[in-house]
Write a protein that binds this DNA or RNA. Structure first.
Lengths: 105, 105
DNA sequence: ATTTTGTATGTAGCAATGCTACATAGGACT
DNA sequence: AGTCCTATGTAGCATTGCTACATACAAAAT
């Protein structure tokens, strides 16, 4: 097991999205704007790396939500650590944008 | 010619870095932390797409900087437009991070 | 003299990634 | 039966990112 995997922007974004409380595929697609063919394989890879853990929604009848079951994800401890390390890298874009703006003002 | 190319995070970051005033490969590597094997091919692709334009540093003797010549890049009009469009996509990560922080406070 | 250090650009080759298009399925409504 | 909405998922392919290496010029060190 690789104990310090490098995350692509997409992987980092998906992790952060889950961390922000959007905890199943369809919702992640919605928030990120990424297509299913990007999100679901990414989720599968993140789980293989043990950065997230999934669990199928239980007792749907009880909730009576009248829709297909969701697969919920949450970050593992390792997932949180790895995300924290990716933070610097993937906020750089925004930092450059902000710096450029304030310079022009 | 594709007149609305989709940029990878790396491509967008390189564009933004140039836009911020870091205008040659070595400097871009420095600012982004990306290796030469990522930056130079990215620059070549961006130029092929006509999002940036390069020019070799001239009259080095005149400047007397005592180092190898630099290849300077600047954004084309199309490059600026394309970067502007990529902005929303690649500031999403930071936005989610900020939102999560303020929620916890 | 030769090696090292620092700046600078670049490529080969391969594994990983991202995306389009499509497939599947349950429940509601028509 | 057909359509709509929610939901998960894959096949297959082009693109991308990165490690490792190569090249070059000038100064400084050994």
């Amino acid at each position: 097991m690789d104990h310090n995997p490098k995350l692509s922007y997409t992987s980092a974004l998906v992790l952060q999205t889950i961390s922000s409380g959007y905890s199943y595929g369809f919702d992640i697609m919605d928030v990120t704007g990424l297509p299913s063919g990007t999100v679901y394989p990414a989720l599968r890879r993140l789980e293989q790396q043990e950065l997230i853990k999934s669990s199928w929604e239980m007792e749907r009848a009880a909730f009576s939500e009248q829709r297909p079951a969701r697969k919920y994800y949450k970050l593992t401890r390792e997932g949180k650590e790895t995300l924290a390390k990716a933070l610097e890298r993937y906020t750089l874009f925004e930092q450059l944008v902000s710096a450029e703006k304030s310079k022009r003002r």
